[in-house]
Structure formats: structure tokens, C-alpha cells
């Protein structure tokens, strides 16, 4: 950044005043308040505050639902890394060429990303429906009757079924991130890597993947942050009534707005925040690293 000739020193702050005030009041201050609320017990969301120190956190440690939520969050996170990253990369490599119709494919593949979770949840509800659902209908049609399950009714399958919906929506996003990354990789290199049988794996490993490392870091951190944020799908598809599918985000909502346990809810939010914060810092570090001074 060159020296700003003649600009008064207060000029940036004049422009920043309105946005910073809005942001401080509606985002920064609430974050600080939630941090404080985690150490309180409250009779209502508005009044009746009582400091309890670390008691909320101590309670969390002995709360089986909290540990279930943590376990489910780990499942979300792991599957969000294991499935969308390689699949998104694969699809991006498939679409990264100049063939006719390529744009149409990309557009169509991307469509799930534009739908709200309310819509997505509604659609997948009847895919998973035990009697009339598409999934079970398909399994029965191909003679795999015994694999037909009550996907959202059985706690063993519930989280997996919900994550699958999230993954369905995440893959197109990861694809977009990789397509942006692939712009920096010569197309012949990727095509060659795809078709050259003998060295396919080697070229992928030694040429394409290293060149895409920056895109991978962004895709992974975004996927992790998204997986930790998952709430809408769970709300729409289980109405947060099904404890078995609880994650930190939904457990916070049920604790605070369902059971009016606002201090406890804040403590859950703080745990979720601290886990996410680590990945937010990785993302910021990555984004600012390549910045050039002007």
C-alpha cells in the first residue's frame, strides 16, 4: 500500500463508522455477551442473572447428551472431509475442460447449493420415508429388501442419513472451490493425468494434488466450519425432537429456546465457538498469506 497522499487520517474511520457500529452492536458485542452468559444461570432470557462460575461447564462434562452431540459433530466433520473433498475434486477435474455442454453440466450439478435447507430437508424427508420413500423403494426394487431401513426413525442411522444430505449439498461447493484452484493448473496436465493409465495415480499424487494444495486448504477449512454449523437440516428433518441426531448447534438451541436454560445453552455455544475458532484462524491465515502490499 502506497502512502495516501493528502488523505486526512480520520478519513477511513469516517467511512468505517456506520459499518463498525452496526457490526459491533449486532455481532461483536453478542459474542462477548455469550462468553459471559456461559458463566451464569438465568431465570429468563431477559432477566434474573446469577453468576455460577464454571458450573455450566462442569455440568456439560457429566451430560450424556453433550457427549452424544460431540460424537455426532465428529461424525459430521469426518464425513464432510472424507466425502466432499475427494468427490468435489473428482467432479471438478471431470468438468475442467472445454467440451461442448460442459457449462450446462456444471450449472446443473451446482443447483443443490442454491436451495435452502428447508427445501432440501423437505425433499429428503420423503426420500428417507420408510414405506413410500424413494430410497427404500429403490432398494426393494433391486431386491435388497433387507437393506431398507427407517432411516430417520432409527437412532443408529439418523445422523448418517442427515450427514448424507449435507454432503449432497457440500460436494458442489467443494467442486466450485477446486475449479477455481484448477484455473492455475494447465489443463493438459490434468487431462494427461486422467487418461495415462500407468502413471495416473502418480501424476495425480505428484503433480495435480500438490498444485491444488491451497484450494484444498480452503475447501477443507470451509467444509469443517460448515459441518460444525449444521443446524437447519437437523431442525427441518428431526424438528430437534430426536435426541439421537443432536449436534452442538442443535443442542444449544434446544437447551436455550426449548428448555429456557440460557446459561447452559451459552456454555454449549462457547464450546462450539472455541472448536470452530481454531479453523477460522487457519482460514484467515490462509487468506491473508498471499496478500500483496499496495
Amino acid at each position: 500500500m502506497k502512502k495516501s497522499i493528502g488523505a486526512p487520517p480520520w478519513a477511513p474511520w469516517a467511512f468505517l463508522a456506520l459499518p463498525l457500529i452496526l457490526y459491533a452492536v449486532w455481532v461483536i458485542l453478542p459474542i462477548c455477551q455469550s462468553l459471559a452468559f456461559a458463566f451464569t444461570k438465568r431465570d429468563s432470557i431477559v432477566y434474573g442473572i446469577q453468576w455460577v462460575g464454571f458450573r455450566n461447564f462442569a455440568r456439560l462434562l457429566g451430560d450424556p447428551t453433550f457427549w452424544l452431540a460431540i460424537k455426532n459433530n465428529i461424525i459430521w466433520l469426518a464425513l464432510f472431509l472424507l466425502v466432499p473433498i475427494p468427490l468435489g475434486l473428482g467432479v471438478a477435474m471431470l468438468f475442467n475442460n472445454e467440451h461442448r455442454g460442459n457449462k450446462v453440466y456444471k450449472t446443473l450439478f451446482y443447483l443443490p447449493m442454491t436451495l435452502s435447507f428447508a427445501v432440501i430437508g423437505t425433499i429428503w424427508m420423503w426420500i428417507y420415508s420408510p414405506d413410500f420413500g424413494v430410497l427404500n423403494g429403490f432398494l426393494r426394487a433391486i431386491g435388497l429388501e433387507e437393506l431398507a431401513k427407517p432411516w430417520l426413525g432409527d437412532k443408529r442411522y439418523m445422523t448418517g442419513a442427515l450427514v448424507a444430505v449435507g454432503v449432497w449439498r457440500q460436494v458442489p461447493y467443494v467442486m466450485i472451490l477446486y475449479l477455481a484452484g484448477l484455473k492455475g493448473v494447465p489443463a493438459e496436465l490434468v487431462e494427461a493425468a486422467m487418461i495415462d493409465g500407468a502413471t495416473w495415480g502418480q501424476r495425480l499424487r505428484h503433480i495435480v494434488i500438490p498444485l491444488l494444495a491451497p484450494a484444498t486448504v480452503v475447501a477443507m477449512t470451509i467444509s469443517i466450519i460448515d459441518s460444525l454449523r449444521a443446524f437447519d437440516i437437523i431442525y427441518v428433518m428431526t424438528n430437534t425432537k430426536a435426541r439421537a441426531a443432536e449436534v452442538l448447534a442443535s443442542y444449544m438451541y434446544t437447551s436455550a429456546f426449548g428448555y429456557s436454560d440460557f446459561g447452559y445453552g451459552s456454555a454449549i455455544a462457547v464450546v462450539q465457538f472455541l472448536i470452530t475458532l481454531a479453523f477460522i484462524l487457519v482460514y484467515i491465515g490462509r487468506v491473508l498469506r498471499d496478500e500483496t502490499e499496495r
Binding site: 459474542i31 432470557i45 460444525l228 436455550a256 484467515i284
Partner: peptide, 18 residues
């Protein structure tokens, strides 16, 4: 940038109160 990525749950109760 950090604010745009934080979990919404961190804001829910204070924003409701505000």
C-alpha cells in the same frame, strides 16, 4: 472475516435480547 464464520449459536441469545 472472523465474524462471518462464527457459529450462529454464539449470537442467538444476545441478539434475541437486544
Amino acid at each position: 472475516i472472523a465474524g462471518m464464520l462464527i457459529p450462529f449459536q454464539m449470537l442467538m441469545i444476545p441478539v434475541f435480547r437486544l
